[in-house]
């Protein structure tokens, strides 16, 4: 699918050849930096935007030309967009009412939804009289009430504080599990994406760079952008050879990649938690100098200067004393955990 805003010199390809299949009942997350086209993709699915090229199919039926009110898709808006002139119960019942469902059915579903999001006591209130988290749950209940085939959520948690956010993440997972509805969730918070999703699609500048399960995306990023965007990563200039991986400076740092990797120069990536520190000069280790240690509570980041000038970070679990015993200037040996080195495409 392609979406172009504007025309001529000002044309902007907000979605550039995005192709994507989402399974029924899946929790799918779109992850990417601000302006990469996540909202645009959701708006195309919901029908608020018409794709410049391409089609949107739902259970095999082409919905590209249908207006939003004829798509079995509901949205939880980033700003919630609750109707201020209606009560919580009327907000939740709005969709069913528009579908022309009988009054009794609407009332029963509203009751059920209120219970689902634990807002029974607030049915008669106006949205303005609720806290941010409560409003968020009303928005969720309103979108779930008509039992859509797909629920679209555009950064629904970004306005909440950290604690409430964690709580709502759990709540969302639970709701998705209970209703079995397909969730398409947008976020630019990589941790949120990793903890909640069945699969993640990483976007950048209108393109889908990689689609995969959280573990797959984290451990086998396809390129430098994905590796950098999801979690922290050390990049090393190196070389892929028949018999193993080498740094540009010549040291052998790992076994040959399983298959597929091109022989020749490459960027190698390794997660900070896969960097092991040893005594200086241990056989097979790289020599490095500690430049700085930063304490993060459960772990400590140790900034290292390699012989060729590359800066890398090692994440060490903080010992009970809280002090890893590495002063700036200390000489150490560095080794990478078995299989931890990834060979990246451009």
């Amino acid at each position: 699918m392609v979406k172009v805003f504007g025309s001529g010199d000002h044309a902007l390809r907000a979605l550039d050849d995005v192709s994507l299949t989402i399974e029924t009942g899946e929790f799918f997350t779109l992850l990417g930096p601000s302006g990469c086209g996540k909202t645009t993709l959701l708006r195309c699915i919901a029908g608020f935007e018409t794709p410049t090229a391409g089609a949107i199919l739902l259970s095999g039926r082409d919905f590209t030309a249908e207006p939003p009110n004829r798509r079995p898709v509901n949205t939880v808006f980033q700003s919630y967009a609750l109707f201020p002139h209606l009560t919580v119960a009327q907000n939740i019942g709005f969709g069913l009412e528009m579908l022309g469902r009988p009054r009794a059915e609407v009332a029963a579903t509203v009751e059920r939804m209120l219970a689902l999001v634990k807002l029974e006591a607030f049915a008669g209130r106006r949205p303005q009289q609720l806290s941010g988290g409560q409003q968020q749950r009303v928005a969720l209940a309103r979108a779930l009430a008509p039992a859509p085939q797909v629920l679209l959520l555009d950064e629904p948690l970004s306005a909440l504080d950290l604690k409430l956010r964690k709580e709502m993440q759990g709540e969302l997972k639970r709701l998705q599990h209970e209703t079995g509805i397909t969730f398409v969730f947008v976020t630019h918070d990589q941790e949120e994406a990793l903890t909640m999703s069945d699969r993640i699609g990483v976007m950048s500048e209108g393109r889908l760079l990689q689609i995969g399960a959280p573990r797959e995306i984290y451990n086998h990023p396809v390129n430098r952008f994905v590796a950098d965007f999801i979690g922290e990563t050390n990049f090393l200039r190196g070389r892929v050879a028949q018999d193993g991986l080498y740094l540009a400076t010549g040291e052998r740092v790992g076994a040959a990649p399983p298959s597929g990797a091109r022989i020749g120069e490459a960027t190698l990536a390794v997660r900070p938690e896969q960097v092991r520190l040893e005594g200086p000069g241990d056989p097979g280790s790289l020599s490095a100098r500690v430049t700085q240690t930063v304490y993060f509570g459960t772990d400590t980041h140790c900034h290292l200067h390699l012989a060729d000038g590359t800066e890398i970070i090692a994440r060490l679990q903080s010992p009970p004393s809280g002090d890893v015993g590495l002063a700036p200037g200390a000489e150490v040996g560095v080794r990478f955990a078995e299989g931890a080195l990834q060979v990246l495409g451009d």
């Binding site: 608020f48 949205t75 808006f77 700003s79 967009a81 609750l82 969709g95 528009m98």
Partner: peptide, 27 residues
């Protein structure tokens, strides 16, 4: 007035006329 309210109404199966009657006009 927040324009997303009308978008939300359309998303919740309201026809353009229903959106006007039930959301825009009361607001």
């Amino acid at each position: 007035m927040d324009l997303t309210l009308e978008t939300a109404a359309a998303d919740l199966y309201a026809t353009p006329w229903q959106t006007f009657r039930r959301v825009t006009l009361p607001l």
